[in-house]
Amino acid sequence: MPQPFEFCVPKAAKAVPVGADWLHEIKYDGYRARLVRAGDKVKLESKAGLDWTWRFPFIVETALKMRQTHFAIDGEIVVLDVRGISDFDALHSRRHDAEAQLYAFDLLAHDGDDLRDHPLHARKAQLGKLLRRQPEGIFVAPFEPGAIGPDLFVAACRMELEGIVSKHRERRYRPRTCDWIKVKNRKHPAMTREF
Rank of each mutant, 00 (worst) to 15 (best):
Y103T: 03
I85E: 11
G19F: 04
R37H: 02
D97H: 12
K43I: 11
P189K: 04
M1I: 10
D111G: 12
G163E: 06
V18Y: 06
L50V: 07
C178N: 11
G49D: 06
H24N: 14
K43A: 12
R172Q: 13
V60K: 02
M191G: 12
A98N: 13
A98C: 06
C178H: 01
I181E: 00
T62K: 14
R37V: 05
D114P: 01
F139P: 05
C178S: 15
A104P: 01
L127Y: 04
L161T: 08
P4H: 13
D114Y: 03
A72Y: 05
E162A: 07
A109H: 12
A147N: 15
K184S: 10
P135L: 08
R169M: 14
L23G: 01
V60D: 10
F139I: 03
A147K: 14
A100M: 06
K65R: 15
A38M: 09
P175A: 08
L108W: 08
L102W: 08
V60F: 08
L108P: 03
A13Y: 00
P189E: 04
A90Y: 05
E162R: 01
R83Q: 15
L152K: 11
F143C: 09
E194V: 13
A12G: 09
D117C: 09
I138A: 07
M66L: 15
L80S: 02
V79N: 00
I138Q: 06
V9C: 05
A141E: 02
Q3P: 11
C8T: 11
A33R: 06
A48K: 14
L50H: 13
Y28F: 15
D113W: 00
I164S: 05
T62S: 14
K187M: 10
L115E: 03
Q3G: 01
G146E: 01
R37G: 02
A190R: 15
Q134G: 01
E76W: 09
V42H: 10
L80H: 02
F139G: 07
R158P: 00
L80V: 02
D151S: 14
K41F: 04
A190Q: 15
H92M: 11
H121T: 09
H96F: 13
L64D: 08
L80W: 06
N185W: 09
V154M: 07
R83L: 14
G149H: 04
A141F: 00
A156P: 07
R67G: 13
A20E: 13
H118T: 03
I181R: 00
T53L: 10
M66P: 04
S93H: 02
